[in-house]
């Protein structure tokens, strides 16, 4: 896959940073405003896909990239399960128990475990979508050779 023209590359350079930041904002404010881990993870994956489509795949090593994204999503979902199991050790003996202090509703640091779950689910969603897309690109490259 070739990269696109210079104008597209320049506009992508300017746009990718804000899109990525918006995804992080959506994830971190998931318990206060609309959004959350699923939406934010999809937006972050969209930023990566935009970068890949605009610059082509000659600038990155696709094999290394797909190994990285696949490892990232595996580790993220493992951390979610470990956090759910931690509530069997601390607090009440219930799976997925919210044992951290709740704080003041409406503050950024509140709602106990929910922001942590949001962050790791977001990483997992971004990794999964990116893995599927990168494997499609690699398949296309290998079969066109």
């Amino acid at each position: 896959m070739e990269g696109m023209s210079t104008i597209v590359k320049k506009v992508t350079q300017l746009m990718v940073g804000p899109v990525f930041l918006y995804g992080i904002y959506i994830i971190l404010h998931g318990h206060l405003t609309p959004g959350g881990g699923f939406a934010g993870g999809a937006i972050i994956a969209g930023a990566f896909i935009l970068l890949l489509l605009a610059f082509g795949n000659n600038v990155i090593n696709l094999k290394k990239e797909v190994a990285g994204s696949s490892n990232t999503e595996s580790i993220a979902i493992l951390i979610v399960v470990v956090m759910a199991l931690m509530s069997l050790l601390f607090g009440a003996k219930v799976f997925f128990f919210n044992f951290l202090p709740k704080g003041e509703p409406g503050e950024l640091l509140s709602a106990g475990m929910i922001p942590l779950y949001n962050i790791f689910i977001g990483i997992e969603v971004a990794g999964a979508i990116l893995t599927i897309f990168l494997s499609l690109v690699i398949f296309k490259e290998e079969s066109s050779k």
Binding site: G30, L32, F96
Partner: peptide, 27 residues
């Protein structure tokens, strides 16, 4: 739950099993 977004509260507290299953399906 401490979360003022009720959908997130349902997703990650009351019905967290569904979310875990969904994440496993995505994986």
């Amino acid at each position: 739950t401490g979360s003022i977004n009720l959908v997130t509260g349902v997703l990650f507290d009351f019905r967290a099993y569904d979310t875990l299953g969904e994440a496993v399906i995505l994986y």
